[in-house]
């Protein structure tokens, strides 16, 4: 009997999708992955909410109320939750705003900044509210594994993913652990 396929969900919170791009860099191994795994909620499938999954990959930190919601949904649905990339692990580039007051950031971006036309801070109710600070994901939910890198290389992502699919503890060689 063929082995049951694992279900994987992925999302990008306050990130740049660079980790997802790097994930795509596994190239022809995508075919191998398609043979052993099904994708659930992910930018690649456009499924809007997460079903029960074996593995969830979370890129990006937590900068707004929607990020908190999605992250909690992932934690509730995924047996193993993996933080992927610098922003998920320590806030990364978005966390640069943590040294400034949020109101000052909005004012600079939408009112007083260079080249701003029609100066108003966007207030559409559809827009998720920004958090006071940007947080790494482990400050909001329990994270089982982390894959550092900005972005982690395709080989690093592949190694962790296949180790987890095989039920093993991820074992990264020296050159596969990078913080940049």
């Amino acid at each position: 009997m063929p082995k049951k396929k694992v279900r994987i969900a992925t999302t990008s919170l306050a990130g740049c999708f660079g980790c997802h791009m790097s994930f795509m860099d596994i190239d022809e191994r995508l075919l191998e992955l398609a043979g052993i795994a099904d994708l659930d909620r992910s930018p690649l499938t456009d499924i809007k909410s997460c079903n029960e999954c074996d593995i969830g990959l979370v890129e990006g930190g937590v900068c707004n109320a929607e990020n908190v919601h999605v992250l909690r949904e992932f934690r509730n649905s995924c047996r193993i939750l993996v933080a992927i990339g610098a922003c998920a692990i320590n806030g990364g580039v978005p966390a640069l705003r943590n040294r400034f007051d949020l109101g000052d950031c909005l004012e600079e971006a939408f009112i007083t900044g260079i080249g701003v036309t029609d100066p108003t801070v966007p207030g559409d109710p559809e827009l998720p509210l920004l958090l006071e600070k940007v947080h790494p994901v482990h400050e909001v939910v329990k994270i089982d594994y982390s894959i550092p890198g900005c972005p982690p290389s395709a080989d690093t992502i592949w190694t962790v993913l296949t180790d987890l699919i095989d039920g093993n503890e991820p074992d990264l060689a020296y050159e596969l652990i990078r913080y940049d």
Binding site: P136, P148, I177
Partner: peptide
């Protein structure tokens, strides 16, 4: 890298 650190474990001070 040497101690195999993949996350920062603690909340960040920023």
């Amino acid at each position: 890298y040497y101690v195999g650190m993949t996350d920062n474990h603690f909340p960040h001070f920023f």
